[in-house]
């Protein structure tokens, strides 16, 4: 038993620090910088039923307090993941949650079925994908659609199931409650905010515009994320995994104070590739330094 042990509704991790989907690859890509197996878990890049090429160019841009990405879920697809990536995760003893993304109910269910058949221990549903059937509205913006989607996945998948909520909704309490009611084991909050960067350059009297439209992440979204976690904490009874702009130990503590049981580090991995592991060590120091027996005890005190 380590002092940072965490039990997320049955998913036991050696610490609550994970890395967020899309920022950490599939397996050991950060191994040159840190021992990835020391993290609580990594969340894989979103994996779809078939390989995806992603969006056309200008996929990323920096903003004043973060970045915007429009990668378009480029990924190798589940078959190649199982064939080439999951053996690496196993051999290196890296704990992982597989992030899945579909473009229809059927695709999510088929993905979840494959995960069940292949004994994938934990999955996180990315529900910020456009639902082709309903005019490309995201699955995660309508609590009724989300309920049905999570329920269909729950029926075929028995492992740990987290639902990653989008903040681009009127009431995240409603979508969070829908995910819980449909049988999710945990909620990950939040996915990226919708954002647009329109950089304008005037060259010899001519305007050159560079636009990136997509998901806004990084330190600028942290207050939005903390707000979502706090509201969800007051609504649902399943564990919340906090995500959004976490860079340092104070941010981690803030998310715990808001009600998160674990956190994911995303954009900060790009700024400092050793951020996540550094936070594991700093969190351990924080717990000890402040005289707590373990993280659980500290969290209880934090929420009094």
């Amino acid at each position: 038993m380590g002092i940072l042990d965490v039990n997320l509704n049955g998913l036991k991790l050696k610490n609550p620090i994970m890395t967020a989907s899309g920022t950490y690859g599939y397996t050991d890509e950060y191994d040159d910088f840190i021992d990835v197996s020391q993290l609580g878990a990594i969340v894989t890049k979103a994996i779809s039923l078939n390989p995806r090429e992603g969006n056309e160019h200008n996929r990323i841009t920096e903003t004043k307090a973060g970045m915007i990405n429009s990668i378009g879920l480029e990924n190798v697809g589940i078959e190649k993941f199982l064939e080439t990536k999951s053996p690496v995760l196993k051999s290196k003893n890296i704990e992982y949650i597989m992030n899945i993304a579909g473009s229809s109910f059927d695709e999510y269910v088929r993905l979840a079925t494959i995960c069940q058949t292949n004994n994938i221990k934990a999955i996180e549903m990315n529900v910020s994908c456009p639902n082709v059937k309903s005019g490309c509205l995201e699955f995660g913006v309508d609590e009724n659609v989300l309920y049905d989607l999570v329920k269909s996945v729950r029926e075929v998948y028995k492992g740990f199931l987290a639902v990653k909520l989008t903040p681009n909704v009127t009431s995240i309490e409603k979508t969070g409650a829908a995910a819980e009611k449909a049988g999710a084991d945990a909620i990950s909050a939040i996915n990226t905010l919708k954002g647009t960067s329109l950089k304008v350059n005037c060259i010899n009297g001519k305007f050159v515009k560079t636009m990136v439209q997509g998901g806004y992440s990084g330190r600028g979204i942290k207050p939005v994320a903390v707000n979502a976690v706090l509201r969800l904490y007051n609504t649902v009874n399943i564990p919340i995994i906090g995500i959004g702009g976490i860079e340092d130990i104070d941010d981690v503590i803030e998310f715990f104070a808001a009600g998160a049981q674990a956190v994911q580090i995303g954009t900060a991995n790009f700024t400092y590739p050793d951020t996540a592991l550094k936070l594991v060590k700093e969190l351990e120091n924080y717990v000890v330094k402040n005289g707590f027996k373990d993280l659980d005890e500290m969290k209880k005190e934090l929420r009094r």
Partner: peptide, 12 residues
């Protein structure tokens, strides 16, 4: 323009 420098983010 790139973010991760190691091929994981697929931004470049």
């Amino acid at each position: 323009e790139m973010a991760c420098s190691i091929g994981v983010c697929r931004g470049c």
